[in-house]
């Protein structure tokens, strides 16, 4: 099993947000996570990436059999965990190309590979940037600074395709994308799909799952996974909304975090 989440409880500032998540993702799989606003999807994604400010009060997370929660964020990244942020961060003064180069070489160094020189690196990046159909000029701009919402999301996908992660977590990467961009982003993901890699795709829209066909779909509500199924679950949610799932799970229609 690539990723195993067992009975994960997480609080933020003393407030319980995740209340017993169990999830197992095998290499080669794509899991979609859906659920109402505020149900804890980004919290889960951030905890997996190692963001500070989250207190794990119970449970464990194993990644490649190792205790993921003990690893520093950069170590997780070097071991192949990648989070595409719901809200990508603007970093004035640090160029996109520099960030990519530092990231690629950090990962390569960790794997015992020689660092890429400027030429090989640019060749690699230019190939990937064509894949996500971004203008090369974006490489020389500051990270996400002044990017439109959709450009930021594409930039996340660019980073992902350059870093070739083992476990990619996409937090609403489809939100704010136009129809063409949605297809391009999906192609980026699909180009990476392989028996060694897994994807955790957080989304509100079943439409994305037409392009990135998931093996499993989970509904996160009230800090728990209240229902899991195959891709037909997403279609059903699209038609009927969350009400019936929440009712069956004994949750009110509010569906946000536990009070």
């Amino acid at each position: 099993m690539l990723l195993e989440i067992r009975n994960l409880h997480v609080s933020v500032e003393g407030k319980p947000i995740l209340r017993g998540i169990d999830l197992a993702v095998d290499a080669g799989e794509v899991h979609a996570i859906m659920g109402p606003n505020g149900s804890g999807k980004s919290t889960l994604a951030n905890v997996l990436a190692g963001r500070e400010g989250y207190e794990v009060t119970e449970g464990e997370v194993l990644y490649k059999g190792r205790n993921l929660l003990e690893m520093a964020p950069e170590e997780r990244a070097r071991e192949g965990v990648f989070l595409a942020f719901q809200y990508p961060v603007e970093i004035p003064g640090v160029s996109n190309v520099y960030l990519l180069k530092a990231a690629v070489n950090a990962v390569r160094k960790h794997r015992g590979l020689p660092e890429l020189d400027a030429m090989d690196f640019l060749k690699l990046v230019k190939e990937k940037i064509r894949l996500v159909r971004m203008d090369e000029q974006f490489l020389y701009r500051s990270v996400n600074e002044g990017f439109s919402g959709g450009e930021k999301k594409r930039n996340e996908v660019l980073q992902m395709t350059v870093l070739e992660p083992t476990l990619a977590i996409l937090d609403e990467t489809d939100s704010g994308l136009d129809i063409d961009a949605l297809r391009i982003v999906s192609e980026g993901v699909n180009s990476l799909r392989s028996p060694e890699r897994a994807f955790l795709v957080v989304t509100h829209y079943q439409r994305l799952l037409d392009y990135i066909v998931p093996d499993k779909v989970h509904v996160l509500a009230g800090g728990r996974i209240v229902r899991s199924g195959d891709r037909t679950l997403a279609l059903e949610l699209e038609k009927r909304g969350y009400g019936w799932v929440l009712e069956e799970a004994g949750l009110g229609a509010g569906a946000g975090p536990a009070a």
Partner: peptide, 10 residues
Amino acid sequence: FYLRSRGIDA
């Protein structure tokens, strides 16, 4: 955190 999540050390 954004930079570290890309593998760059603290």
